[in-house]
Lab assay of single mutants.
Amino acid sequence: MAEAPPRRLGLGPPPGDAPRAELVALTAVQSEQGEAGGGGSPRRLGLLGSPLPPGAPLPGPGSGSGSACGQRSSAAHKRYRRLQNWVYNVLERPRGWAFVYHVFIFLLVFSCLVLSVLSTIQEHQELANECLLILEFVMIVVFGLEYIVRVWSAGCCCRYRGWQGRFRFARKPFCVIDFIVFVASVAVIAAGTQGNIFATSALRSMRFLQILRMVRMDRRGGTWKLLGSVVYAHSKELITAWYIGFLVLIFASFLVYLAEKDANSDFSSYADSLWWGTITLTTIGYGDKTPHTWLGRVLAAGFALLGISFFALPAGILGSGFALKVQEQHRQKHFEKRRMPAANLIQAAWRLYSTDMSRAYLTATWYYYDSILPSFRELALLFEHVQRARNGGLRPLEVRRAPVPDGAPSRYPPVATCHRPGSTSFCPGESSRMGIKDRIRMGSSQRRTGPSKQHLAPPTMPTSPSSEQVGEATSPTKVQKSWSFNDRTRFRASLRLKPRTSAEDAPSEEVA
């Protein structure tokens, strides 16, 4: 009796068929016929556990003709996506030579605008209408194809895939403007070719909807975003200037109206006075309405000098805001240009540092100066060695804690006790272990408590650290204090090793 083939788990290929790579489910599931010992083939499952149809090819690079078809379809799909992405970037994010197409579109729109203006002049109306009709045909074809291509290429973005995504893309403001202008152009052409009475009025009214094509030149909205950011950044200043200017306008108009309503027919109503105030304070000055009385002229002159300053403030605020924003954008561009080279330089330096163990090129690091100058660790070890030599091999803490019996001779020589300023008595072995921070803190506390006492003391002649007598400086308080830590004499004296002298005989010792 033939044995059933062993159940295979995992992703390994079956024996005897090495080139074939078959994806098997996580659990080997066989058909009921196979479990019962029949000759049925096992049921194939996909990666998600769903059964595959009987005629479906197995996924994998070596699955025969199905694999070749899959490779061809995958390559075609990649080319399709690449083309779609390229078209989308050309239309929505132009760079380099892609601006040539947008310059061509701008020339078409500008020519249409010029011809629309010439069509309103009686001398050039006939020729402009003929040229404009031909140009409209060209623009309908160009913009119609462009609109379709834009909607198709938007599928390269995830949020615009599918018919719902394309509809979302078509609802964008600039796409809506394109659609309105396209419909208006078709209506103008249809009305112009019919030759009816309505054609002339339709051409004159709907052609100027094509002015909206100038708005579509900035599809990404960079200028509007820049203007919005400047207004938002200086909103408080703008609101303040406009508010005060509006108050000056209504008060000036009302007072001039009261002064001129009886003697001047131009100011017969408050609305006429508001019109005069707006034209005057905005420095336009049509001259259609002028005050005639001396009181009205004085009020107009005073409020004009006051109001023009507030009406001119928004222009200066926006101008300075634009300058600052442009400078910030230039700085951001320079930062973006330098970020990648800086990151590459840091990575290269780290690779060199991690692979080169000698690091002989590091001549400006802490390790280099640590090898030249005595390190703080060596100074600490030197302090501890000196203290243990004086205390008979014991550390200062051990000397303080060691009990001394009554009447027993002390094995240590008597030492002079010292007192730290602002604290109780402490171990004499710690007097010379006072660090730089303690010395600086002690000097600052003395300056806070009594700076007036220092200038009363007789001035001391500054001497070099080499000429100081070591026996005289029994305490860190003898170090000359200065008002600034930048004094080199104080810094050098604080680094010197001060020996400890006994109370009975204080021989001067120098520590090399």
Rank of each mutant, 00 (worst) to 15 (best):
M1T: 04
M1K: 02
A2P: 09
A4V: 11
A4P: 13
A4T: 05
P5S: 04
P6S: 08
R7S: 07
R7C: 09
R8G: 14
L9V: 08
L11P: 06
G12D: 06
G12R: 04
P13L: 07
P14Q: 06
P14R: 15
A18G: 10
P19H: 10
R20C: 15
A21E: 03
A21T: 04
L23P: 13
A25V: 03
L26I: 11
T27A: 10
T27S: 06
V29G: 05
Q30E: 07
Q30R: 06
E32V: 08
E32Q: 05
Q33R: 11
Q33K: 13
G34D: 07
G34V: 03
G34R: 14
A36S: 14
G37V: 11
G37D: 08
G37S: 05
G39S: 11
G40V: 04
G40D: 05
G40C: 07
S41F: 01
S41P: 05
P42R: 04
R43C: 04
R43G: 08
R43L: 07
G46R: 08
G46D: 04
L47V: 07
L48R: 08
L52R: 11
P53R: 15
P53T: 09
P54Q: 12
G55S: 14
P59A: 08
P59S: 08
G60W: 13
G62A: 13
G62S: 07
S63T: 10
S63A: 05
G64C: 12
G64D: 08
G64R: 01
G66R: 09
G66S: 05
S67T: 08
A68V: 05
C69G: 04
G70D: 08
G70A: 14
Q71R: 14
S73T: 10
S73C: 13
S73P: 11
S74L: 15
A75S: 13
H77D: 14
H77N: 12
H77L: 11
K78N: 14
R79L: 09
R82H: 08
R82C: 06
L83V: 10
L83P: 07
N85D: 15
N85S: 15
V87D: 01
V87I: 11
V87A: 12
Y88H: 07
Y88D: 01
N89D: 15
R93W: 14
R93Q: 15
G96D: 15
G96V: 02
G96R: 15
G96C: 01
W97C: 15
A98G: 04
F99S: 11
F99Y: 11
V100D: 01
V100F: 00
V100G: 11
Y101C: 02
Y101S: 01
H102Q: 08
H102D: 02
H102Y: 15
F104S: 01
I105K: 00
F106V: 10
L107S: 01
L108P: 06
F110C: 07
F110I: 10
C112G: 08
L115R: 10
S116F: 15
L118R: 05
L118Q: 07
S119P: 07
S119Y: 11
I121N: 08
Q122K: 04
E123K: 03
E123G: 07
E123A: 03
H124N: 03
H124P: 12
E126Q: 10
L127R: 03
L127H: 11
A128T: 10
A128P: 09
N129K: 07
E130D: 06
C131G: 03
L132I: 15
L133F: 04
L133R: 04
L133P: 07
L133H: 06
L135W: 09
F137S: 09
F137C: 10
F137I: 06
M139I: 08
M139V: 15
V142D: 01
G144V: 08
L145M: 05
L145F: 07
Y147F: 13
I148M: 06
V149D: 00
V149A: 15
V151G: 02
S153Y: 00
S153A: 13
G155A: 03
C156Y: 15
C156R: 07
C156F: 10
C157F: 15
R159C: 13
Y160S: 00
Y160D: 01
W163C: 06
Q164R: 07
Q164E: 05
R166C: 11
R166L: 15
R168L: 15
R168P: 00
R168G: 06
F169L: 02
A170P: 00
R171S: 14
R171G: 05
K172M: 15
P173L: 09
C175W: 02
V176I: 06
V176G: 03
D178V: 02
F179S: 04
F179Y: 01
I180F: 04
I180N: 00
I180T: 13
V181L: 13
V181G: 07
V183G: 05
S185P: 03
S185A: 08
S185L: 09
V188F: 05
V188L: 04
I189F: 04
I189T: 07
A190G: 07
A191G: 03
A191P: 05
G192C: 03
G192V: 02
T193P: 04
T193N: 04
Q194K: 13
Q194H: 07
G195D: 04
N196I: 02
N196D: 07
A199G: 08
T200S: 08
S201A: 12
S201T: 04
A202E: 03
L203P: 07
L203V: 10
R204G: 09
R204P: 07
R204C: 12
S205I: 05
S205C: 03
M206T: 09
M206I: 03
M206V: 04
R207H: 03
F208L: 09
F208Y: 04
F208S: 08
L209Q: 09
Q210E: 07
Q210H: 09
I211S: 04
I211L: 04
L212Q: 08
L212P: 03
L212V: 15
R213C: 05
M214R: 00
V215E: 01
V215M: 14
V215G: 14
R216C: 04
M217L: 13
R219P: 15
G221D: 02
G221S: 03
G222R: 04
G222A: 03
G222D: 03
W224G: 00
K225T: 12
L226M: 02
L227V: 15
L227P: 00
V231L: 15
Y232H: 11
A233T: 14
A233V: 12
H234P: 00
S235C: 04
S235N: 04
S235T: 02
K236M: 02
E237Q: 01
L238R: 01
I239T: 06
I239V: 07
T240S: 13
A241T: 05
Y243S: 01
I244N: 02
I244S: 02
G245A: 15
G245W: 05
G245R: 01
L247Q: 01
L249F: 02
I250N: 00
I250L: 05
F251S: 10
S253C: 10
F254V: 03
F254S: 04
L255Q: 00
V256A: 00
Y257H: 04
L258V: 06
A259G: 01
K261Q: 03
K261M: 02
D262Y: 00
A263T: 13
N264K: 01
S265Y: 04
S265F: 02
S265T: 04
S268P: 05
S269A: 01
Y270C: 01
Y270S: 00
A271D: 00
A271G: 15
A271T: 04
D272G: 01
S273P: 00
W276L: 00
G277A: 05
G277V: 01
T278P: 00
I279V: 01
T280S: 03
T282P: 00
G285C: 00
G285S: 00
G285V: 00
Y286C: 01
G287A: 01
D288V: 00
D288Y: 00
K289M: 11
T290I: 05
P291L: 01
T293S: 00
W294S: 14
L295P: 03
G296D: 00
R297T: 00
R297W: 00
V298D: 00
V298A: 09
V298L: 12
L299M: 13
A300G: 14
A300P: 00
A301S: 11
F303V: 01
A304P: 00
A304V: 02
L305S: 00
L305V: 05
L306M: 10
G307D: 00
G307C: 00
I308T: 09
I308V: 12
S309F: 00
F310Y: 02
F310I: 14
F310S: 03
P314R: 01
A315D: 01
A315G: 12
G316D: 01
I317V: 13
I317N: 01
I317S: 01
L318R: 00
L318Q: 00
L318P: 01
S320Y: 01
S320T: 15
G321A: 00
G321D: 00
F322V: 02
A323G: 12
A323D: 00
L324Q: 00
V326A: 01
Q327H: 01
Q327L: 01
Q329E: 13
H330Q: 02
H330L: 09
H330N: 03
R331G: 00
R331L: 00
R331W: 00
K333E: 06
H334P: 01
F335C: 01
K337R: 00
K337Q: 01
R339S: 02
M340I: 09
P341L: 08
P341A: 03
A342P: 01
N344H: 02
N344D: 05
I346L: 11
I346F: 01
I346M: 14
Q347R: 10
Q347E: 08
